[in-house]
Amino acid sequence: MFLTCLSTFGLLRAAEPLPFSSELTTVLSDRYPHGVEDLKLLEEQVQLVAAQAVPATVEVEIGRSIGSGVIISKEGLVLTAAHVIGRPGRRATLVLADGRRLKGRTLGAHHWMDAGMVQITDPPGDLPFAPLAPEEAVEIGQWVVATGQPGGILDDRSPPVRLGRVLAADDQWICTDCTLVGGDSGGPLFNMRGEVMAIHMSIGPEVVHNFHVPVTEIRPVWEKMLQGEVWGGEVAERDHDGNWAVLGLAGRTINERTVVTQVFGGFPAEAAGVLPGDQIVAVDGQAIASILQLTETISRKSPGDTIHLELMRNAHVMELDVMLSSIGEPLPGSFDPSSSEAQPESREQP
């Protein structure tokens, strides 16, 4: 479910958990709303959560890559995904919902967990931020709210707000049916008190299965990330001068169809004319049935290779020759072939 918030939310600044009435507590604990009054209570609470969530949700720009994040302190500490920041000491720009652009530096990252930090270098006095959720159990069916900046900042759109429920969870991940697309990586997942309970870590190959790393999992390594330490996975361990081939798009698998959800500016897919909504049918004559298969196919190529891309658009087949470029960090919202995120079956079947 999508809910679009007005830009006036950007004028609000809040960092306190939202209260629950006894009536709302009952609605949230039921399996589903039982009538119009229940729906009204749920809607009112979602609006309050959105008013707290949207101002604290930021776009994270690092080089040519764009992801999402959330400000969690008045001092300007931002939580995001490890694959968004890559490594410490990189220049970052944080774009607020009200359009302000703040400078920052990347801190540490845990790549196995897919959690990272950015520090705003000169935080303003009116900086919005969101509270962190306490140590508490995540319940199956629990209502949650996701925000992010998919596709970057748009003049007529504040960070989209999506309502969903927890489908599954363990100590290391939460799976929800909140819809996520390319660019949402690193954005926050809120509980119904308006507290940050997790960070988007994996856009699943199916629209109703997306994964988030819980704040409770991040807390034990908090100080290590503040100190700029990076660990976990080949991204952290390999030589950062190394590059791999990149097509420059994000997508998802829908009914065994590979559908493009985002095309990144300045990369080969955009130059060749690929558009969001296109279905990737084949690469070099090899049928493509999933976004994971597409990622694995491109990962076997080298920068400078030309691929023959067959796609479907509006029921018409198109053929494009695309020369791959190189990149040193995975693009937000796309699978990193060197990490466990390229093994979605381990997360889709908890």
Rank of each mutant, 00 (worst) to 15 (best):
Glu59Asp: 08
Val60Glu: 13
Val60Leu: 13
Val60Phe: 01
Glu61Gly: 02
Glu61Gln: 14
Ile62Gln: 00
Ile62Thr: 01
Gly63Tyr: 02
Gly63Pro: 01
Arg64His: 12
Ser65Cys: 12
Ser65Arg: 15
Ser65Val: 01
Gly67Asn: 05
Gly67Ala: 08
Gly67Arg: 01
Gly67Ile: 02
Gly67His: 02
Ser68Leu: 06
Val70Cys: 04
Val70Arg: 01
Ile71Pro: 07
Ile71Asp: 02
Ile72Phe: 05
Ser73Pro: 06
Lys74Ile: 09
Lys74Met: 10
Lys74His: 14
Glu75Asn: 14
Glu75Asp: 15
Glu75His: 13
Gly76Asp: 04
Gly76Gln: 08
Leu77Ala: 10
Val78Met: 15
Val78His: 12
Val78Ala: 14
Leu79Phe: 08
Leu79Cys: 14
Thr80Ser: 13
Thr80Ile: 03
Ala81Val: 07
Ala82Asn: 08
Ala82Pro: 06
Ala82His: 09
His83Ser: 02
His83Met: 05
His83Cys: 02
Val84Gln: 01
Val84Leu: 09
Val84Asn: 06
Ile85Pro: 06
Ile85Gly: 07
Ile85His: 04
Ile85Ala: 08
Ile85Gln: 06
Gly86Lys: 10
Pro88Val: 13
Pro88His: 12
Gly89Phe: 10
Arg90Ser: 07
Arg90Val: 00
Arg91Phe: 10
Arg91Ser: 10
Arg91Ala: 09
Arg91Glu: 06
Arg91Lys: 11
Ala92Lys: 06
Thr93Trp: 04
Leu94Asn: 01
Leu94Val: 15
Val95Pro: 01
Val95Cys: 05
Val95Ser: 10
Leu96Trp: 03
Leu96Gln: 06
Leu96Val: 05
Leu96Ala: 03
Ala97Asp: 07
Ala97Thr: 15
Asp98Phe: 04
Asp98Leu: 12
Asp98Thr: 11
Asp98Met: 11
Asp98Ser: 11
Gly99Met: 10
Arg101Gly: 04
Arg101Gln: 14
Lys103Ile: 03
Lys103Gly: 15
Gly104Ala: 11
Gly104Cys: 10
Gly104Pro: 09
Arg105Gln: 06
Thr106Phe: 01
Thr106Met: 14
Leu107Gly: 06
